[in-house]
Design a protein around this nucleic acid. Structure first.
Length: 458
RNA sequence: GGCGCGGUAGCCAAGUGGUAAGGCCGAGGUCUGCAAAACCUCUAUGCGCCGGUUCAAUUCCGGCCCGCGCCUCCA
């Protein structure tokens, strides 16, 4: 069964097929800027792309997928962070790259085959800018910056329909259009390919034919995808916010430079909202994985939560939904543990993967999963269940939420109650249970002993 | 102002021109001294509002209301 996926450029849902003779599907996913911990909104996109990666492996073969995800390790934010902390840029980006990798691993995301960095590909970016200069698609501003001349590319705006857009009238936004460097550009739509060195950049600058400076943001993806995947790639993905201007600019640069179509298919995942609003520091509704783990949630429950909504639809993330995910995962773990070893064909989980292959419909896939689990009679098929879990990237053997340390006083109370229970002094036992509950702990009895866990909050 | 997405049970969320998946929560039951777990059962005559098309609309069309996102470097 083919994978179908919505294409942001044509606005059609189309089948995915490798276009190169070697049968390798070339897939580029815009990665994070490494200057701070990624938040769960970022991870929605990466988890969705991870599911896609897994489906591609199932469909075309494990060695027939080439997945590239870049790391932006030089830009205004990374440089500012390094300056604020008085550390070298590389120290900052290395630290946050490591954190990003740890979070991805916790969320069970497969590592991309290549993870190129902007600073590791200055040469390739400069080369590309030189071609654009030669072809007349770019110009050097008086300060030494190089800009892409948007008017030189007739195809500009097709992806985001930017020609149908207008700047917001009479608002603060219209006035703040790049006040910083607007004077250097010939047109406000033009965007930087190369940024001339400024004092704030410190020693984060490289030599170029136009003087010392650093690459603009968009050029890195064009240069690195070309180097690793070729001039025309099969699929380019990212969050909706990258649609304009980032991806629009990438298309302009790459197609003007290479003279061939940049990407055959574009896919954009929608934003994660928190409590009905986009995450932002000012609203205080921004979560990191660590913060959720600190609240007692498992990373796998966070992954599950991110899959509860259709990737092309805004998903409202709440702590209640992570609770729901944690409970659902618990059921899945129990089901998995009770699955018979042998394969059976009466209850196959193939519909789960089928739902995912239909434009990454993860909520439908989760629905199908439980529908099959709850189907009476017959025998569930372990092989297809494992495959469904692989596609969803749900590792049911991953650690459940870490048990909290039990205070000695609580343990003492529990031991008293256990003794009372053994002595069949149920009145005392019940009283002690109440005390424990009041103190915030649930006592779980077993045949041969007890365990304690924090009282579940509603 | 422009562009785009969405409004489905207490919460989250699929879906279809033919009469509403699933998860969570909640309720009842079985089983347990109690509690928990597990298992069973139940939970939208209804899909933002108003019209229209149709034998039939939540699903198509039109209007309206509300929410969210993007509009130059935020996944």
């Amino acid at each position: 069964m083919a994978i179908t996926l919505h294409d942001s450029l044509s606005r059609e849902t189309r089948e995915l097929q490798p276009s190169h003779p070697d049968g390798v599907y070339r897939f580029y996913n815009c990665g994070p800027t490494v200057y701070a911990p990624a938040h769960i909104g970022n991870f929605r996109t990466f988890v969705v792309n991870d599911v896609l990666r897994r489906l591609l492996e199932l469909e075309f073969g494990k060695d027939k997928v080439h997945h590239v995800r870049n790391l932006t390790d030089v830009d205004d934010k990374t440089i500012r962070r390094a300056r604020e902390e008085g550390r070298p840029l590389a120290a900052v980006t290395k630290q946050w790259t490591a954190k990003f990798h740890a979070d991805c691993q916790a969320l069970n995301c497969l590592p991309p085959h290549d993870e190129p960095t902007a600073t590791g590909h200055i040469r390739e970016q400069v080369d590309m800018i030189e071609v654009l200069m030669q072809k007349g698609n770019a110009y050097r501003a008086p300060d030494g910056s190089v800009y892409f001349k948007v008017s030189s590319f007739p195809g500009y705006g097709h992806l985001s329909r930017v020609h149908e857009r207008e700047l917001q009238h009479g608002s603060a936004l219209a006035g703040k259009v790049h006040a910083a460097d607007a004077d250097e550009k010939e047109d406000v739509s033009d965007f930087a390919l190369w940024k001339a060195h400024k004092a704030d950049d410190g020693d984060n600058a490289w030599d170029s034919p136009w003087g010392r400076g650093r690459p603009g943001w968009h050029i890195e993806c064009s240069a690195m995808s070309k180097k690793l995947l070729g001039a025309t790639i099969d699929l380019h993905t990212g969050g909706v916010d990258l649609l304009f201007p980032h991806h629009e600019n990438e298309i302009a640069q790459s197609e003007c430079c290479n003279g061939v179509p940049f990407a055959k298919h574009w896919y954009h995942s929608e934003h994660l909202l928190v409590d009905g609003k986009k995450m932002s520091k000012s609203l205080g509704n921004l979560y990191t994985l660590d913060e959720l783990v600190a609240k007692g949630f498992s990373p796998m429950a966070v992954r599950y939560t991110l899959l509860m909504g259709h990737p092309r639809k805004q998903l409202n993330f709440t702590l209640d939904s992570v609770h729901a995910a944690e409970s659902a995962l618990k059921t899945l773990r129990g089901f998995h543990a009770s699955l018979p070893a042998g394969g059976a064909t009466s209850h196959t989980f193939e519909p789960v993967v089928a739902a995912l292959k239909d434009d990454l419909n993860s909520p439908a896939a989760l629905g199908a999963l439980f529908t099959i689990i709850n189907r009476p009679g017959g025998e569930p098929d372990r092989e297809s269940f494992d495959q469904a879990m692989f596609a969803l990237g749900l590792d049911l053997t991953a650690a459940a939420p870490a048990a909290q340390t039990v205070p000695a006083a609580i343990t003492a109370l529990a031991e008293q109650r256990w003794a009372a229970k053994q002595a069949k002094d149920f009145a005392a036992a019940d009283a002690l249970r109440k005390d424990l509950t009041a103190a915030g702990w649930s006592m779980l009895d077993r045949k041969d002993g007890f365990s304690l866990e924090p009282v579940k909050k509603p």
